[in-house]
Amino acid sequence: MVVNIKGDEPPETSTVVNVETGGLTRRFRRAHAVAGVDLRIGPGVFGLLGPNGAGKTTLLRVLATVLPPTSGSMRLLGRTPADQAGRREIRRRLGYLPQTLGYYANFTVFEFVEYFALLKEVPADRAQKAVARAIERVRLDDRARAKLRTLSGGMLRRVGIAQAIVNDPELLLLDEPTAGLDPEQRVEFRSLLREIGERSTVIVSTHLVEDIGAACARVALMLDGRIVFEGTPGELTSRGTGFEIGDAPLERGYAAVLAKARA
């Protein structure tokens, strides 16, 4: 959301929508992994919560253009991915971290991130500097020349994040990005998310409600392929008032919305 104020005129609000879906579905045989999702998301960090099997990963894969939807409409960064030119333009401005990061064990951190910088068509003369910057942003400077097979799970997760942000994406899709990160790294990562979210759209799928509370401006809760709640973390918290399940206010809100949706 961008708000422009010109002198004494009332605030003029122009909304940038980077993700727009209508009735989006994705079916695997008879199972509806995504069952009619309507979203309008602008710049900022958007959290996607939900229990296992809710459809979060499938929704992210569709938004990442890995999977085509079974039906429904979708516009990303103002383009439709249905045609090849639109898809290519979207992918140039997209960053994606899948739930499971596949990697080349013999590549160094730098080589791995550089590989995707080149595949994302970052110009060759700028690619190396972009790679170094991405590696610095995820605090892997001291391991830039280390082989990937020598890294811990948390470090590999940060390598995955580095490849996702190497092209300064306008749409960043992260599936369980904090899995394997220690508490200190998670705090740093949330700070990175907020920084990227100042000008880009970041969609984070996670199980950890504290990540949502700390980093996200808006949050959606998925259940059985549908969005059953969308609002701010504060609004989600308020749904948990008087609900007893959950240790933290946001957890109680999460549990309360899920219980109501299931009922």
Partner: peptide, 14 residues
């Protein structure tokens, strides 16, 4: 075959 196939599918180079 390709470990990073999932990410590679989101690249502008088809």
């Amino acid at each position: 075959t390709d470990p990073a196939y999932e990410i590679a599918r989101t690249m502008p180079i088809s």
